[in-house]
Design a protein around this nucleic acid. Structure first.
Lengths: 234, 234
DNA sequence: GCCGGTTACGGTCAGACTGACCACAACCTG
DNA sequence: CAGGTTGTGGTCAGTCTGACCGTAACCGGC
């Protein structure tokens, strides 16, 4: 039954629960987002976040992983996954009363979704400034971006965007891509290495990129998850 | 989300959605919490957060207000109310699959719940260190406390605990009650008044308390909601 | 009225942290 | 080798913070 009648209801059990996932990653120095093309008739040409209904026997996190796998062929066993919040406005889905629990996922760079899925990574800036997403997914995306940008300030979330071992240049590239602003390399370095447990030296040097440059030291994630004081956005 | 082919499903629609509310307030300089006694058989003697199922025609916020009203007789039209997150573990409620969307509510000091409701305010410290709450409400409470303590650092949430006009001593009392630690009055004052838009002078002086003391200036909330840089916990 | 206690308010001072630089190291390509 | 690029270490001034002191303005009791 739909909630559209507004007549209120035996509606107590009418809600269904779904999970939508905002999967963020950095590709070529740009913050990217995983979108899928819904197969719902009437939404042809629109893009949306990957989402699935919650089954009775699975936790919300499981649903999030399943949505990524079934809709985009993306496996994220070790990705960072956290809940954003629930979106439960009565008419957020015109078809039925669906409460969606949005999740934020972060993964290092991965390949394109395999063929057979109408899924792709897109530049976040193209989505935010371009045409809108289906349902209220624009709003969910905006909230997810704010969460990610904010958590970069006071947690070590940035390390979830890179593979170990990584260089401080790569880590700085994550901050610059997510925040959309360049950072001073020297100050960034000072902050990161002076925060106990943020990163630990892994030994060895990474070869420079095609443009040259001094080889960078390699690091791994430390055991600290909170930065105090925070590294505030410029 | 919309209907999609679920291969099997007694399960898909089995979830029900509820809202649980952590209502915080400061009474006599102590952080307090609203608890109710569930009428569920088998939970006699336990206390829990006020919670209700979401009806098909109401938003999540509406359910939160309704839970406070129906279970505790508390009206919170102007209280701060924000969503915490959803709790959806399969067996979090042994009776049924219930996804609960927890909310954090903050109100200035209010009177005791009217008779006829088995609800009361309790000191948060007594709950955290004492016997446990029903369901997973201990966990929800812990998350809510962390959210409140954290938001005091970087938002003007503290002003939701006091009635206008208020003194900086009252506002400092909120921080001390929520954080559970005394603050330096002079440094607190410097930080608050030097943050543009946190508070604005309301004019006039508040009479001192029974113990005497210099009369304090009166303030109202400003239009700033974020503190930058944050006021970190000691 | 005086005196000790209490709260509010204003200021100082040393240390920590930040942003803006500069200099050099170590690699690239041509 | 020259010029460009990136990484690393340092300086320096300005800001912010915590600890502290002194004074203002009220209380209650003697």
């Amino acid at each position: 039954m739909t909630a559209r009648t507004g007549v209120r209801t035996p509606a107590v059990s009418a809600c269904t629960v779904a999970v939508d996932v905002v999967l963020l990653t950095v590709r070529d120095g740009r913050l990217n987002l995983l979108l899928v093309e819904p197969d719902t008739p009437g939404l042809a040409g629109w893009w949306s976040l990957p989402g699935r209904r919650v089954r009775g026997d699975e936790d919300l996190h499981d649903t999030a992983h399943r949505a990524l796998w079934e809709l985009a062929g993306v496996t994220t066993p070790r990705a960072h996954l956290e809940q954003l919040r629930a979106y439960g406005e009565v008419f957020r889905d015109p078809g039925a009363r669906v409460v969606s629990v949005a999740h934020l996922a972060v993964t290092p760079t991965v390949g394109d979704p395999p063929h057979g899925h109408s899924a792709r990574f897109v530049d976040v800036d193209d989505v935010v400034s371009g045409p809108c997403l289906a349902y209220d997914h624009d709003r969910i995306l905006a909230d997810a971006l704010e969460r990610a940008r904010s958590k970069l300030e006071y947690t070590s979330l940035a390390t979830a965007f890179v593979t170990e071992p990584f260089t401080l240049g790569e880590l700085r590239g994550v901050y610059e891509a997510v925040w959309g602003t360049p950072l001073d390399a020297a100050n960034f370095r000072r902050k990161v290495v002076s925060t106990p447990g943020f990163v630990v030296e892994a030994g060895g040097l990474a070869p420079p990129g095609p443009g040259g440059g001094r080889p960078a030291r390699r690091y791994r994630r430390g055991d600290a998850h909170h930065l105090r004081p925070a590294m505030l956005r410029p």
